[in-house]
Structures are given as C-alpha cells and as structure tokens.
Design a protein around this nucleic acid. Structure first.
Length: 993
DNA sequence: AGCTTCACG
DNA sequence: GACGTACGTGAAGCTG
C-alpha cells in the first residue's frame, strides 16, 4: 500500500477521528443488537469491529456533517503510560477494565483501518487527544479546515473558526456539530477558557481532581468574573463565599487545581511519528478491503464494499491473516480465550410437508400458527345452542375429539359472587358454540329491559347436568384461557372441571416478560386476530349492562370466539412447550397451581370486622388530632392528601432545604424526603409522616377490607394472578392480601383482624432468608453456604467477613449495614441505591460494594455472567428452568438497559424462590391428606403460607407443612444450602407470624 | 388515566 | 460520555 502525499493547505478538509471513543461506542451499540451478529462462526467477537467498519465506510464514502474529507486520520490511545500518569498517578485510575468481549477486537480495529487504506495512528506517552490537538494545530496553521470526530468534551478546548467538532449519532443521541457557541453552551465559557474551567471543575470520569465543591457551573461563573484561572487564583482572597475562598486559597487545594490544569490541557506539539501530509485520503483497494471483511464474515458490508469498489466478492479469498485462530491474535500475538457461552440456537428448520407424524413440535407450532392465521376467524359460523339435542350433539363431538376449549360468561368479574350466564365450547378451529343459560331480555336502546320475556334457553339445571359429565370426564381435556376463573365459577355450580389446560399459563411459561398473557393480546400476537372487546358487547362504566342482557346473537359471537381463540392458541402454543423445553415448567409449576389457587380463593379467610371498625375509629381520631396540629404549624389549612399542595407549602412557602423533584418535575414529598426534614428537627414534616401512615392504614386496610367480605361465606376471597409477574411470583388483588402491614406496631394491629374460625388456629409458615440462601447456592459462595449450614445469623456473618468484626457481640449498626448490602446484592446493587438506603455518601457505599465483591468474588462472577447472558440471549433461567425474558435489554436508553440488567440479576433468585413455594403448594394438599390433616391453605405471601387447622391438629400440620416446604426443591434441584421454615400457630395472623 | 405515595416480600 | 439508579407487586387519593 502506498501513501499519497497530498499537501495540506487552504481548502483541505482534515478529519481527525478519535478512534478509541469510536471503538467503545461501536461496542456498546453492538451489544444492544442480536448476539448472532456479534460473533464470527468460531465465536470470535466482532460486533464492534462490524459497526466500526460500517462507520468508517460511511466516512470514506460520504464524509460527515456534510463535508467530504481530503485527509482522514483515525487516532487511538496506545498504552497505559500516558505522561499524565507521571504528573498524577491517580489519573484515569478507576477506569474499569474493558469488557472481555471487546479486548480481542482492539487489534482488529487497527487492521480494519489498514484495510480501508488508512494508517492507524497511535503513539507512546501521548494520548489520542494530544495527537489530535497536534495535528489540528498543524493543519489550521496551513489554512485547512479541521473536523474532530469525537464526543469527548476534553477536545472542546481546540475549537475555533477553523476547527470544529462532530459528534456522530449514538444509540441515545442525535448527531451534533459542536462549534464555538456549543462550547459556550456546555462549559459557560469560550473554548480558550475551557481548560481553566475544567481545571477547577475536575472530571470524575478521568479522575481529575479539580477544586472540591466546584462544578462546571461555578467554575464558569468564576472564570467569567475574573477572566482566567491565574487572575482568579491571584485574587482568591477577596472572594466573598467562604467555601470558595477557602478552596481557592488553600495551598494543597491550589496545587491540585494546578495539577488538574496540566492534566486537562492537551499537548499540541507532540513529536509526530506520521506526518500530517501522510493523512491523505484515497480510494481503498477493493480487494484488500473485501478480503478483510470476508475474513470477519461481514456479509452485508462485504457486498456493499464489493459493489462500491467494483470487485467480485466471490473471487476474493478471506484474508488468511484473520481467518481461524489468526483472527484471535491479540495485541501481543497471544490467542484470546473464547468466551464460554452457548452459540445462539439455530433457526428453526424449514417446515416439512405436513405429515403430522414427522413434524417436530416446533414445526407443528409453526404449521398451526400459519394455518390459524390463514383460516380467518368467521364469527357467523358460530352456533347458539338452545335445545338439548344440539347440546348433546356438541358434547358428543367433544367426547369424540378428546379435548374441548371452553369459556364461561358471567354477570361480573368476581368469580365468588357472580352468576353463570352461559358457556361456550370449541371442538376445532372455527367450530364453536355458545350455550346461553341465564340470559334475560336484552337491553334496548335505552338500556332498559322493557319487561319482555327472556330469550329461549335450555333450563339451567338441565344444561349443567348434561355438561357436568363432559367437564369432569378424565378422557376429555378441557382447555381454557385463565382456567382458574372458570374452575371457580363452575365449582359454584357443583362441577369439578378436570383435566385442564390453560393457554394463559402456557403462554406465561413460554413468554414471561415478552408480552402479557391476556386472551386478546395472545390472539393478536399468535393468530393475527383482533377479538371483540368485552366492553363492546357488555358496555363499561355507566353503560355496563352485564352479560346476561347482551342479545344472544352478539353474545354468541363474543363468547364462542373466546373458546375458538383459546383452542387455536392451544394448538399453536402447546407444541412450543416441548420444542422449547418448557414442558416441565408448565407441568410442575404452572398447571398444578390452577386447582390449588382456586381452592384457596374459594375457601377465603375470616376477618373480624369489629377489630377493623374499632381501628378505623382510632385512626380517624388520631388523624383529626394530627390534622389540627399540622394546620396550626402551617398557619393555614390545606388538603393534606395532596402532595402538590404539601410540596408548595414545604419548599415554596416555607422554603425548606432538601427539596427533590419527582420524575415529572414536581416537588417530591415522599417519606424519605420528609424523614430527612423530620430528622433535622422539623415537627411539621414529622406530623405529616404520622398522618400519612394512619391515612394509608385506614383507607387501604381498615376501611376497605370489610367491603371485601363475601355475603354468602362471610370471608374475604382474594384473587391470585398466576401470570402477572415477570419472575414467577403470584400477585394478589381484590383485596391484595400480600401487602397487609407487618413492619410497624400500628400496622400489625390490622393483622390481628385476620382470625381463625372457632375451634381452629391460623398457622403461618415462612421460609427464612430464602432468597439469600438461593444466592449462596446459585453463585456458589462458600462462606455463605457454610454460614447457612451452621445456622449462623447471615447478616452478622456478612458483616464479620466484610469488616472483620466477630459475629459474637456484633454492634447492631454494623449488622444493619451488612443486611442492607445483602438485600442490595439481590436487587442488582448500585452504589447510589445502597447509599440511599443507608444514608451514607456514595463513595462509602461504593467502597462497601468493592469490599463485598473482594470477600465474595463468586457474586461478582454471577452478576457479570448474568448480565452477559441476558445481553446476548435476552433471557435468564431459574434453577428449575423457568425463563424470564428481557426483550428490551437492547434498549438504546442506557439507564433503561441498566434497569433491565438489575432485574435480570434479581430474576433467577426471586424466580427460584417463587418456583420453590409453588412446588410446595402443589404438593401440600396431598401431603396433608396423607397425614390425616384437615388443615387448609388459605394464603400465600411470596415466602409464607398461611393455613387454617383444627386446634387439635396444629402440631401435626406444622410438621407436615415444614417438611413439604423445606423439601420442595427435591428432586428437581438439590440445593447446597438447607432451607429453613419457621411455623407457628395462633388465633390471629399477627401472633402466628 | 397518570402520577405519587406507600403497604408487602 | 451521559444519565438515572436497588428487585417484584397492588391500591388509594389527587389531579386534570
């Protein structure tokens, strides 16, 4: 390759590209894309190289910012021995190691630059920024225009009328041109004073110290006032603000500022190894370029380069210097280690001819999906069944098929208080019927019934008597969407539906985190079909007429469609379970829960309404007292429940310090903000907190719970959602029984209202530290495993490992910190979060985390591995095989990505705990029955099960419950830590807990 | 309906 | 380099 020697002069456009920042950008962009594009077939990571090449290709062909370069230099940082390290050893000290996947790509970047016919520029001692400064100065001296391509604000000091910057678009930002005005916008000063501002403000990313307590804003203010840094420091004694005067006159601090100045100022007279004129741009050699791109296996780029430079790609061999292990050569010729990971799954085989026997499950699912999409849903084909003959015919058809999809229509969404209005059945795609049972005269245009007779229907009891044998037949599989609901409704009619299949739960097992699992959404996604919205037939809000008044033709279209769609979904989704190895998750963790939860919900729990109404009264009195005091302190009355008004008073009228903003920019009045105020002696804030607590307890619990007592059973029947969370946990609603207060005295009074029926006790059994135990198992942490094996207090043990304090006589505050760290770890720790939690500076929190990872390196490994896995595959798996998907892990928003990474770290832990308690619940009824216990499960609160047992059976029940819960992982998983369950019996939930 | 706050694990 | 921040839920009240 020969270099052209084009002299640089007026009219030249010199592009100086900050190669290192480009490389990192390319890398971070690459990991947001599908992993299959980021590796060569031999697993050499090449994603960053690909994006780097694409960008280079663009520059060479089209230029940037509307300018074509005449000269182009890609400039890299060569090594660690920057002269700045000599000046200040901590310079860039806490930079992280580059990601493992990026390291083998560094030499390939240089090779790519050469393949484009350019010289990669890098020099010892000088950083890329210094070389850019030097080239820029030389070029402008010759009258050329210079475009620095970089996002690094350190380069802004170089900008003038001939030198500008261009920051290309990244995942998060638009491209932008940075000139004189943009520098003033960013630093508050023109380019020539940027160094002075940076010397004062410092730079945390490069570890440039600057002046303590002075940021860019203050620095710009000072420099603008005094003209420059020298003048400022000379006259610092006259500064009014004591803090600023102190930091600008103290000799040690001034020395740091001077050092910072040297660190920040770019060297513009570095001895260049490659002369300015050697940067001339000429057309790349097509063969060389294509040969390199082929070795990298970049198919798109190869094709485009071949077209652009008029070469025939087929005739060019991949460059042998980069094929096979040669591609792995590192900087020093060593062979990099392939990351230990699975190759992405091969794309599903092309659909074979539809001979059912030869189909793989995946192909079957795909075939049915296509068939389902092709066979349009035609609602006019549905039948309204109003005679016993037709009903019998449908039932016979279901028996013949061996499966039937079904759906129930009711008067309300509450399965414990609604009436069954009709049943729909489907025996084949498109073959569905609706059996109205309790329809009344349809609503007229005025929504009134008008006194007409009800439409002709099969008498309710007759229809149920005919349906019961079908719905209970072991030989016929009953398929429904959210079968728990239908099970509850039909149980009220004396029908015990079995065996069952649930499309919602199949979808949940397959696609948790990818989409929600409602029928309408699944129909849209898998069948391309838009279901009739419920509100369109039954109305909503004030216009709600209830399903019983929907005319039969419309009711049939809606109801039969649901059964038809459920059947079609089942045909598409069910084969995917086998194909995607999710059958055992579905069969052991999902399907068994339907009957278990239905029974729990149906049983309900007794609450003592007297206790609650007495509490409501107490709370109301206390609140009134507090309210008066608060208005007195405020000097005015206002709406206490309005965060807006409260914020205005606190931070507007009173002008209190410590104001924070919420996501939408309003004043935050959250407990943490008010606690800070209260701690500094603000009585007003303290009273608000007291009032808030009582208000919460009263409105959410003592006032609301009695409204959920079922008239017929006199008990509260929550509803557990099986497919609501991304981790496998249940959720509870109407009422939510999983957030009944327990953490403070006032709240616990509410638990006393959850009582056992006469002659019975409530038994609460909860897993002790299950998530930390699972962390110790999953990340394989010897010290933690041993502590659990020996029954040592785990937080004390952590504290002792970290701070070297003996477990015996551990100060409670030390233990508290270790406990917060332990929880933080489970949540995907950040220094910010831990600092917030503990009320300590972020640096201190960061030091804790560092120490924690030093003591327990396995946890860092686990976190890194999980993050890598989720970025590559978009999914994490619990030890029981449950998958949690994070499709948005590739988001272009960095904070959003970090959020999903933390969630992905948490999911296998929270999810495994959820799996374990599900396993226990699935086995519990049989175990109790075998032991002769008539105890019944009433509630689940994530790591706790609550039972009601006859007084004389409490002891046996506790033994059985403990055993089933502690042995729940077996035989699917053998934990390396023991599980421990604490169980107690009492008359109410508070005392049992 | 969206936001804020707060109850739980 | 910038930017927001501990994981998972559901309910109530205010606001527009």
């Amino acid at each position: 390759m020969s270099l052209t020697h084009q002299p640089i002069g007026p009219g030249s456009h010199v592009f100086l590209v900050d190669g290192s920042s480009f490389v990192f950008r390319a890398y971070f962009q690459s990991i947001r894309q599908d992993a299959k594009y980021n590796y060569r077939a031999d697993r050499l990571p090449t994603g960053a190289v690909r994006l780097f090449c694409a960008k280079l290709f663009q520059f060479v062909r089209e230029g940037a910012a509307g300018v074509m370069p005449t000269h182009l230099a890609i400039i890299f940082d060569k090594s660690e021995n920057s002269f700045r390290k000599e000046i200040y050893p901590d310079y860039k000290a806490h930079r992280q190691e580059p990601p493992a996947d990026l390291v083998p790509q560094f030499p390939l970047m240089r090779a790519a630059v050469r393949a484009f016919g350019l010289l990669p520029i890098e020099q010892d001692v000088y950083e890329a920024d210094d070389l850019i400064a030097t080239y820029a100065k030389l070029a402008r001296a010759r009258g050329a225009d210079v475009l620095i391509v970089s996002a690094d604000k350190d380069l802004m000091q170089l900008i003038d009328d001939k030198v500008s910057m261009y920051d290309p678009a990244s995942g998060t930002r638009e491209e932008r041109r940075i000139g004189y005005n943009e520098v003033i916008e960013y630093f508050g000063v023109p380019p020539e004073k940027v160094v002075d501002v940076q010397a004062l403000a410092g730079d945390s990313t490069d570890n440039v110290p600057g002046a303590k307590g002075i940021g860019v804003k203050t620095a710009a203010l000072l420099i603008n006032e005094y003209g420059d840094l020298d003048t400022l420091l000379a006259r610092a004694g006259s500064i009014k603000q004591p803090k600023r005067r102190e930091v600008l006159t103290d000799p040690a601090s001034v020395a740091l500022i001077r050092t910072s100045q040297k660190l920040v100022k770019l060297v513009d007279d570095a001895p260049l190894e490659i002369s300015l004129d050697d940067l001339g741009l000429h057309q790349p050699d097509g063969k060389t370029l294509v040969s390199f791109l082929q070795a990298m296996e970049f198919t798109q780029l190869t094709r485009r380069a071949a077209e652009t430079y008029g070469v025939e790609a087929n005739e060019i061999e991949p460059d042998p210097a980069f094929v096979g292990p040669a591609g792995w050569r590192g900087r020093n010729g060593e062979v990099a280690e392939a990351p230990a990971q699975q190759a992405p799954a091969a794309p599903a085989a092309k659909l074979p001819t539809p001979e059912a026997g030869a189909l793989t499950p995946a192909a079957l699912a795909e075939a049915r999906r296509e068939e389902g999409v092709a066979t349009k849903i035609d609602r006019s084909l549905y039948e309204t069944v109003t005679t016993l003959e037709r009903l019998d015919a449908w039932i016979a058809e279901a028996f013949a098929a061996g499966f039937v999809a079904m759906d129930t229509e009711t008067t309300s969404l509450d399965p414990m208080s609604c009436d069954l209005v009709g049943v729909s059945l489907a025996t084949a795609p498109g073959r569905a019927c609706y059996i109205p049972l309790r329809h009344v005269a349809s609503a007229g245009p005025d929504l009134l019934g008008g006194g007409e007779p009800p439409p002709a229907q099969i008498p309710f009891d007759d229809a149920i008597a005919r349906l019961k044998p079908l719905l209970e037949a072991r030989s016929v599989l009953k398929i429904a969407q959210n079968m728990k609901y239908d099970l509850l409704v039909l149980a009220c009619c004396g029908v015990d539906v079995a065996p069952i299949e649930d499309t919602m739960l199949i979808s949940y097992a397959l696609d948790s985190g990818r989409n929600n699992h409602g029928l309408d959404e699944l129909a849209k996604k898998h069948l391309g079909h838009e279901c009739i919205p419920f509100a369109a037939v039954a109305g909503s809000g004030r216009s709600f007429i209830g399903f019983a008044r929907v005319p039969l033709d419309k009711a049939t279209e809606y109801a039969a469609e649901d059964a038809d769609v459920a059947l079609r979904l089942w045909r598409v989704l069910k084969p995917r379970l086998a194909a995607e190895h999710m059958t055992s998750v579905y069969e052991t963790l999902e399907r068994p829960m339907v009957g278990v939860l239905a029974a729990m919900e149906r049983r309900g729990v007794a609450i003592d309404r007297n206790i609650l109404s007495r509490l409501s009264g107490e709370f109301a009195q206390d609140m009134a007292r507090l309210e008066a005091e608060i208005y007195d302190l405020a000097g005015e009355s206002f709406n206490l429940g309005s965060p807006k008004q409260l914020g205005d008073i606190l931070f507007g009228r009173m002008g209190l310090p410590g104001a924070k903003k919420t996501a939408t920019g309003a004043w935050s009045t959250s407990a943490s903000v008010l606690e800070d105020l209260a701690e500094s002696g603000n009585t007003f804030a303290a009273r608000i907190l007291d009032w808030r607590q009582l208000s919460k307890l009263k409105s959410t619990y003592t006032d609301a719970l009695p409204g959920f007592v079922n008239k017929a059973t006199n008990r509260v029947h929550t509803s557990y959602a099986l497919a609501a969370t991304t981790t496998g946990r249940l959720s509870s609603s109407e009422p939510n029984l999983q957030n009944i207060p327990v953490r403070n005295e006032a709240g616990r009074k509410i638990r006393k209202a959850f009582v056992a029926e006469p002659g019975h006790a409530l038994i609460s059994a909860d897993y002790s530290q299950i998530e930390l135990r699972l962390l110790a198992h999953i990340a394989d942490i010897p010290q933690l495993r041993q502590a659990f094996a020996e029954g040592i207090d785990i937080h004390a043990k952590t504290a002792s490992e970290m701070f070297g304090v003996p477990v015996q006589g551990m100060p409670s505050d030390v233990r508290r910190r270790a406990k917060a760290i332990n929880f933080g770890i489970i949540y995907g720790i950040s220094a910010f979060g831990l600092a917030n939690q503990l009320g300590i500076p972020r640096e201190e929190a960061a030091a804790y985390i560092k120490r924690y990872f030093e003591r327990f390196p396995g946890i860092r490994d686990y976190m890194d591995k999980t993050k890598r896995l989720v970025r590559e595959q978009g999914v994490v798996t619990t030890i029981f095989g449950r998958k949690c998907h994070f499709p948005r892990i590739g988001s272009s928003n960095a904070s959003e990505r970090a959020f999903f990474e933390r969630a992905a770290i948490n999911a296998p832990i929270q999810g495994a705990a959820a799996d374990i308690i599900r396993r226990a619940m699935a086995r519990m009824d049989a175990a109790l029955a075998t032991a002769g216990c008539s105890a019944r499960m009433l509630m689940q609160v994530h790591d706790e099960l609550v039972f009601e047992a006859p007084l004389e059976e409490t002891e046996t029940t506790i033994a059985v419950v403990k055993r089933v819960m502690e042995e729940a992982p077996h035989p699917a998983a053998t934990l390396t830590v023991p599980l421990q369950v604490e169980a107690r019996a009492a008359q109410n939930w508070d005392e049992a807990h």
